[in-house]
Simulated assay, not measured.
Amino acid sequence: MASAGRSFRAAHVFGAIMFAAWGVGSNPVGAATTAPQPFAWPASLTPIGNGYPKEGDACRRLGESPATADYLDHTATLIGCPGGADSVTVRAVLIDYRAHVVGTADGVTLISISNSFRQRPPPDRQ
C-alpha cells in the first residue's frame, strides 16, 4: 500500500514539473510579451478626434477625402469603426444611434448617423 502512495506522489510531482516546464517553454522568463497594437487609422479616411461618441472610444468621425466623398452627406455624420459590420462596436452604434452602414474602406466600417437623431438614453436610465 505504501508503494502505491509513493507512486501516486511521484506521478503528481512529475506532472507538476512537466506542467511548469511546458509553461516556461511557451513563454520564457524575461521574454517580452507583445500587447495588441492599437488600430492604426488610415490617413485616407481623415479621422477626426480621439473617439466617437466620446474620447477614447474605438470609432472616429471621418472627414472629407477621396475615400469618404461618396459617403458624406450634409444631413448626417460619417463615422468609422475598426473591423467588420458584425463587430460589437459597430452593432452598438447602429442600435444606439439608429444608424446604418454605408460602406467599408481600409479595414474600417463606415457608418452614417442622421444629424436629426438624438441618442436614446442607456437602458439603465429609461
Rank of each mutant, 00 (worst) to 15 (best):
D96Q: 11
M18F: 14
I17A: 14
A76S: 14
N50E: 15
N115H: 09
P28C: 07
P82H: 05
S26E: 14
A10T: 13
A40F: 10
A92H: 11
A2V: 06
P66K: 04
G83K: 04
P121A: 14
A43T: 13
F14R: 13
N27E: 11
Y71W: 13
Q126D: 12
I111P: 00
R61F: 01
A58F: 07
N27G: 02
G107F: 08
N50K: 09
Q119F: 04
P121Q: 11
A31F: 11
G103W: 12
E64D: 11
I17Y: 08
T46Y: 00
E55P: 06
P28D: 08
D106P: 03
F117N: 01
V24H: 10
A11F: 09
I113K: 00
A40V: 15
I111R: 01
L72M: 14
G80L: 02
G63A: 08
S87A: 06
G5F: 10
P123Y: 09
R60F: 02
G23F: 11
I111G: 01
Q119D: 04
A20P: 01
L62Q: 00
R61T: 11
F14A: 15
G63D: 02
F39R: 01
D73W: 04
R120F: 08
W41V: 08
F19M: 15
V90A: 13
Y71E: 03
P82I: 11
A10C: 09
G49S: 05
S114R: 11
S44V: 15
L45C: 07
T68P: 00
F39I: 12
G107E: 11
A20D: 08
D96N: 15
D124A: 13
A40E: 15
A21K: 06
D86I: 08
Y97T: 02
E55Y: 01
G15E: 07
C81N: 03
L78F: 06
I113D: 00
P66L: 05
A35T: 10
V29C: 00
G51W: 09
T34F: 13
A99T: 05
V29K: 03
T33C: 05
P36Y: 03
H100C: 05
Y52T: 01
S3H: 07
S114D: 15
G80V: 05
M1W: 08
A43N: 10
S44W: 01
A43E: 15
Y52K: 00
T34K: 12
E55K: 11
R118N: 06
V88A: 13
Y97R: 03
I95S: 09
A32W: 13
V93A: 00
T68D: 04
D96R: 08
R125C: 03
G30V: 10
G63I: 12
G23A: 13
V13H: 12
I95K: 10
S65A: 15
Y71S: 04
G30A: 10
I95G: 00
P122R: 12
D106G: 03
R9D: 05
D96I: 02
C59G: 04
L78E: 00
E55V: 14
G107Q: 08
P47A: 04
R60G: 01
R120E: 12
S26D: 09
V88P: 00
V90L: 01
A2H: 10
N50S: 09
S116Y: 12
G25I: 05
I17N: 05
D86A: 12
P66I: 09
T89R: 08
D124C: 04
E64M: 11
